[in-house]
Design a protein around this nucleic acid. Structure first.
Length: 294
DNA sequence: CGCCCTGTTGGGGA
DNA sequence: ATCCCCAACAGGGC
């Protein structure tokens, strides 16, 4: 569930509950969570530390703990953090007991989520720097930067936007919605956009993420079955997982492609498909056989 | 009921 | 640089 807007929402909700509190006890129930570190030592190293700050980098939550430790969490697809849940949910992976009798539960059915404990800011920066590019909601995120990053790149712009080492925190839903707003087809080669299109893409990513944060944790699931979503959110969830439904701008049926192994939704009228040859990338077929849906 | 496909992510190997 | 597959599970379609 968590893309950047959801992670930011979680961070904002969690920070007041955690900051200034000590971790009285930590139980790591799923050994894979701390991979590649052994869970036992991590458990022991966390115990008794005070949470000084809950930050975010891309889709990572970064806890700054006393003693120069940093807990770097990623919730992947299905991870969730629950503060004072009435009972442990079915897929509880980690339990934190906090000051004042409070507790925090990390729940994750698919077990993709990870938690890494590092020592010192340089280690934290090295971990994150190796994985993350520019933060999209900062002044450093400019059209010129996008263009420079994409220069000479032949991979589809879809994959480019999803590459966390280029732009930190844009996931599959927001990538689709941003490209729709910018009128850019996912199969365009990343390096083939015009200058105005890089700016349009930058603006659309910023717009979508900002709306997403305003949605306070609401996701496409909350809008999927609603035809006319409310207010500005009808602006946010236009194409993703809406195969066959009309494009809100021109009425053309939304199509599904598979690009970079990910479901990709597009209005091929608002987002003109590149002609085979220059600036085009081969489409891949959903499922075992060929072709695109609808 | 069972089989098959899909998925809000990222890492590793080819 | 780029592409494919995988992790582990739930839910939906057939």
């Amino acid at each position: 569930m968590p893309e950047l807007p959801e992670v930011e929402t979680i961070r904002r909700q969690l920070a007041p509950h955690l900051e200034g509190r000590a971790l009285r006890e930590v139980e790591i129930l799923d050994p894979r969570w701390t991979r590649p570190d052994p869970p036992g030592p991590v458990q022991d190293a966390l115990r008794g530390r005070v949470v000084q700050e809950v930050g975010r980098a891309g889709k990572y939550l970064v806890w700054r703990l006393s003693g120069e430790r940093y807990l770097i969490m990623h919730l992947r697809m299905t991870g969730a953090l629950l503060f004072d849940p009435p009972a442990d949910p079915p897929h509880t992976r980690v339990r934190f007991a906090l000051d004042g009798g409070h507790r925090l539960v990390y729940n994750d059915p698919r077990r993709f989520g990870t938690g890494h404990l590092v020592t010192g800011a340089p280690s934290r920066d090295s971990y994150l720097g190796r994985r993350l590019g520019v933060e999209p909601l900062t002044p450093a995120f400019t059209a010129a930067h996008l263009r420079a990053q994409a220069r000479g790149r032949t991979a589809p712009v879809k994959s480019f936007v999803l590459d966390q080492r280029r732009i930190a925190g844009v996931g599959n839903i927001y990538a689709d919605e941003a490209r729709f707003r910018a009128g850019i087809h996912p199969l365009r080669a990343a390096g083939s956009l015009t200058r105005p299109q890089y700016e349009a893409l930058r603006e659309a990513i910023e717009h979508a993420l900002t709306l997403g944060i305003d949605a306070k944790g609401a996701t496409i699931d909350d809008f999927r079955h609603v035809d006319g979503a409310q207010g500005s959110f009808q602006d946010l969830f236009c194409v993703h997982q809406r195969v066959g439904r009309p494009c809100p701008v021109c009425g053309t049926a939304i199509r599904k492609l598979v690009v970079g192994g990910r479901g990709t939704y597009v209005c091929e009228r608002c987002q003109p498909r590149p002609r085979a040859g220059r600036g085009a990338v081969r489409a891949r077929a959903p499922g075992a056989s060929g072709g695109e849906q609808l």
